[in-house]
Design a protein around this nucleic acid. Structure first.
Lengths: 207, 207
DNA sequence: CAGAAATCCCCCGTCATGGGGGATTTTTTA
DNA sequence: TAAAAAATCCCCCATGACGGGGGATTTCTG
């Protein structure tokens, strides 16, 4: 059973020490260092060589989300779990697309945090329940779409940067038919170009 | 404490009965029906009125993934948890985009299954650890990209169906510069059109 | 210092786009 | 079943977007 090396970056001293104390008591967990800002942590990333970093978002100096790419560049194999009060979609998706492997909200009970560290090391993606649902929802479309099935399908192909002829060929219809559908799509979305249609459709999760 | 009404759709009789027996013993859980195929379940969806459906993918007749939209159309408030042996990306993402709210693999221990039912009812998105990580990974880019930052940024704007002039305006550069970048992108990706570039970039998670 | 990255310039022919005007048939739904 | 919605196809036209070809310069970075 290999020890899991953990670094905590959290500006709240009470939380930081609390996490460190409790996690340090887990048999195969080792708190290699704790920091109150990423700026402090930055120069010691390689020497700390953590398996898992618990990372807050709201930090003095560089914020946690912007810190992720720097961490991944310095120590790519390290798993980053966000541990934060923020539950805004933007922050969640930015954290994940920047390279975080987990996302926990701060009222997460300690046993779940403890499990999450092992889970992320073992190839899992620990998330708070609510966060996981938001992530799943991001794959789903709005079921109150004004667009018909065919229109949705064609708009998705426009999104994939295909032109009318390519779409026509794939759907075995005439390019003029595609054009007609596009006219109807533009009318329904109150736009008059491909890019505007995509923007409107994305905003309303129609595609 | 309101009872959670559960329907199980699973063709393996042993599993089906096993799940039903164990879940039925949970205090506020009620197994309203179990089915060995979606075709059997279909006509009773409204009368069963489940809060949560445990749904297998491999079923005789209509498969579980294609069943999801039909279920959501009939009883939109019902939460669907996939419970399957399949861990292929396509199946996972199709299930989630079709409307599933959770995805568990079949070797999931019973306590986790029990928790997942309550979790999904309470707005969570229960997933097996490995699945959750795959979902998170789908937000992340390949860090071994041949494209420069600017090239990636421009390709992302092309993906958003913007034309050279729109990109130029947003980036405060000349449309000719955008064109130059595109030439370089095409060369690096060995393609010669926008749609091919997007396709290649998507396949390799460059955008 | 060399190479990559980012910026801008020209010419050219073709094809894509969007606006305008239709029509027909099939499918869905009230 | 009748009306509405969806899906299909047709024409004209002007603009401009696209990709291929040929460059150049400056700034950043290993």
């Amino acid at each position: 059973m290999k020890t899991i090396r953990i670094v905590i970056i959290e500006d709240d001293a009470i939380l930081r020490k609390g996490y460190a104390t409790i996690l340090g008591k887990v048999e195969d967990y080792s708190i290699v260092n704790t920091y109150s800002s990423f700026d402090d942590a930055r120069k010691s990333l390689e020497s700390d060589d953590p398996d898992v970093i618990l990372l807050d978002i709201e930090l003095p100096g560089l914020n946690g989300i912007d810190a992720i790419p720097i961490i991944k560049k310095a120590i790519p194999k390290t798993h980053i779990i966000m541990l934060t009060v923020y539950e805004f979609e933007d922050q969640i998706f930015n954290a994940l697309s920047n390279g975080a492997s987990g996302y926990l909200v701060k009222n997460t009970p300690m046993p779940k945090i403890i499990d999450s560290i092992r889970e992320v090391r073992d190839g899992g993606g620990p998330m708070s329940a609510h966060i996981a649902r938001m992530v799943i929802k991001s794959f789903q479309k709005n079921d109150l779409s004004p667009l018909s099935k065919r229109e949705t399908q064609i708009l998705e192909m426009i999104r994939d940067v295909k032109n009318r002829k390519q779409i026509a060929d794939e759907l075995f219809i005439d390019p003029e038919t595609v054009k007609s559908h596009l006219k109807n799509i533009y009318a329904k979305l109150h736009v008059n170009s491909k890019s505007e249609a995509i923007e409107a459709a994305r905003k309303n999760r129609l595609i």
